[in-house]
Write a protein that binds this DNA or RNA. Sequence first.
DNA 1: ACCTGAACACCGTTCAAGT
DNA 2: ACCTGAACACCGTTCAAGT
Lengths: 188, 188
Amino acid sequence: MVRQPSINAQHRPPLSTERIIEAALQIVDGQGLGRLTMRRLGDSLEVEAMAIYHHLPRGKEQLLDGLVAHVASAPAEDTPSRPWQDVLRGWAGDYRGRLMAHAGVLPLVVTRRNPAALTTTVASLREVMRRGGIAEGAAAAAAHTLLGYVIGHTALEVRGTNEDGADRVVDWEARFTAGLDLVIGGVR
Amino acid sequence: MVRQPSINAQHRPPLSTERIIEAALQIVDGQGLGRLTMRRLGDSLEVEAMAIYHHLPRGKEQLLDGLVAHVASAPAEDTPSRPWQDVLRGWAGDYRGRLMAHAGVLPLVVTRRNPAALTTTVASLREVMRRGGIAEGAAAAAAHTLLGYVIGHTALEVRGTNEDGADRVVDWEARFTAGLDLVIGGVR
DNA sequence: ACCTGAACACCGTTCAAGT
DNA sequence: ACCTGAACACCGTTCAAGT
């Protein structure tokens, strides 16, 4: 029998930053942030953990920054034919869904010093409001208010403060849109 | 010379859950969450790390839960003589200050499954609104909106999205109260 | 250029033992 | 009851070495 030349040396896609981030996100989504280790990440990529450092020289720090950029950087796409309020409502719903789908990275989104990720998002919100005739200063403030609300409320939802003082079950969807209307309705 | 009976055996206060949490908070505030380890915490208490497990049997998990409870559980104190809007504004300012002072625990507040900590806080907000004549359902929803906003906006502030697209410096204080008025003003 | 293997300095936690 | 000391199974990261 002919000897196999180092099993799986050829038949796998080469390592890349993108593949690394995707594999990491899959681990976080499936097993939680606490189980994301360089060694486990290496395993899932069929590579020694140390190979990752060749693509992410700053190591785990850079990996976590990449995760935040991947989930939190989702600017609103403006559609001039729609009322700007509807555009923002649509964006907020999508962003909430995005954060919930990757709830494991929420603590990173909240505190990681990774300016670029949120800056483009907040800028896009400001632009939509500008287009709607909101003054520059008010638009800038309201963009932060809106993003802050969406992130904060989604965090509460993920934590699941599921009682209410009373024993009512919370309808998070309704609660989210109620607060959202309140925020968007106040912008002028 | 008389032999000292096991240095510092008597002249230190006995270990207690409270002292442990306080020491942990001091480490987090001073050096960041990443540097909070059981061994370092033991050092700062002049005790072996393993002694901590006698007071917190669930270990680090329980320690982190304790930190969240210590900073996030801060209900609004109602003052019936003041308008309920002012009471909420006052609470929000205090809560923001609290979160900023202990920014290192913010990621824990956001995601730790620790219902009690936030439940009492959110219940107190609902009660203040009830007293102000807001209907039960609306008050419950608005309480979540308000807490979500305060946590989310403060998280953005701590991260310091300090540019703005343009190069303007952000006045976070003004921005916070602007969004706050928007949220509180919309409650009815 | 890209990956490996061994090594280092740490972790959280267990468990038997001391007082 | 309260704390210690040694041990175990992990971490992230470095560094020299392989191809």
